[in-house]
C-alpha cells in the first residue's frame, strides 16, 4: 500500500532548457509533418520566436530530471506495476526552443479502489519559464496494479 502520508510530497525543483534538436526529434517520434514544428523559418513565418513546444512535450521535459522515477522509490511505487491513467494540461502561455523551464511537482492525492487492487497517485506540475511566467500546469494520474 502506498501510504497516503505522501500526499503533499514535493519533488526537487527541476530546470531544463528546451532544445531545438530535441523538439525536432519529438516531432519525428509523433509523425509530425507541420513545418512550424520542424523548421525555424516556418516557425518565424507563423509569428513564433522559435520552434514551439507542442502540447504534450512539457510532460516529456519533466522526465529529463536526474532521477525521473526517484519519487517512485520514496513513495514505494514499483515501476513494473505502473500504468498512466490520466493526463491533463492547462496552458497559460507558449514555450519555445531556447526557453528554460522550471518544473515544480507535488503529489495531490493518493487513493485506492477495488479493495486495494488498484492504487492511484495524482501528481500536479507547475511549469514556469526563465522570466518567472507560469507557462502551463499539468496533472498526471498513475495507476498501480496489484495482481
Amino acid at each position: 500500500m502506498i501510504d497516503p502520508c505522501h500526499i503533499g510530497y514535493v519533488s526537487p525543483p527541476f530546470t531544463t532548457e528546451v532544445e531545438r534538436g530535441r523538439l525536432r526529434f519529438f516531432a519525428k517520434a509523433i509523425g509530425e509533418t507541420d513545418p512550424v514544428y520542424l523548421e525555424e523559418d516556418a516557425a518565424h513565418a507563423a509569428g513564433y520566436p522559435g520552434l514551439p513546444v507542442p502540447p504534450t512535450f512539457l510532460f516529456c521535459l519533466e522526465m529529463d530530471r536526474p532521477a525521473p522515477y526517484g519519487w517512485f522509490d520514496d513513495l514505494g511505487i514499483e515501476l513494473p506495476k505502473v500504468l498512466h491513467g490520466e493526463q491533463s494540461f492547462v496552458y497559460h502561455a507558449m514555450a519555445y526552443a531556447g526557453d528554460c523551464l522550471t518544473f515544480a511537482a507535488r503529489v495531490r492525492d493518493i487513493y485506492s479502489k477495488k479493495g486495494g487492487l488498484l492504487e492511484f497517485v495524482v501528481q500536479d506540475n507547475q511549469i514556469s519559464n526563465q522570466r518567472g511566467e507560469l507557462i502551463a500546469e499539468f496533472t498526471r494520474t498513475l495507476v498501480i496494479r496489484h495482481g
Binding site: 512550424v36 514551439p52 491513467g85 492547462v90
Partner: peptide, 16 residues
C-alpha cells in the same frame, strides 16, 4: 493543432 494555432489551445486532457 493541424486545425488550430498552438496558442489557441487552453486545456487538453485524456484518460487512457
Amino acid at each position: 493543432t493541424q486545425q488550430v494555432p498552438l496558442g489557441a489551445l487552453r486545456e487538453f486532457s485524456t484518460r487512457f
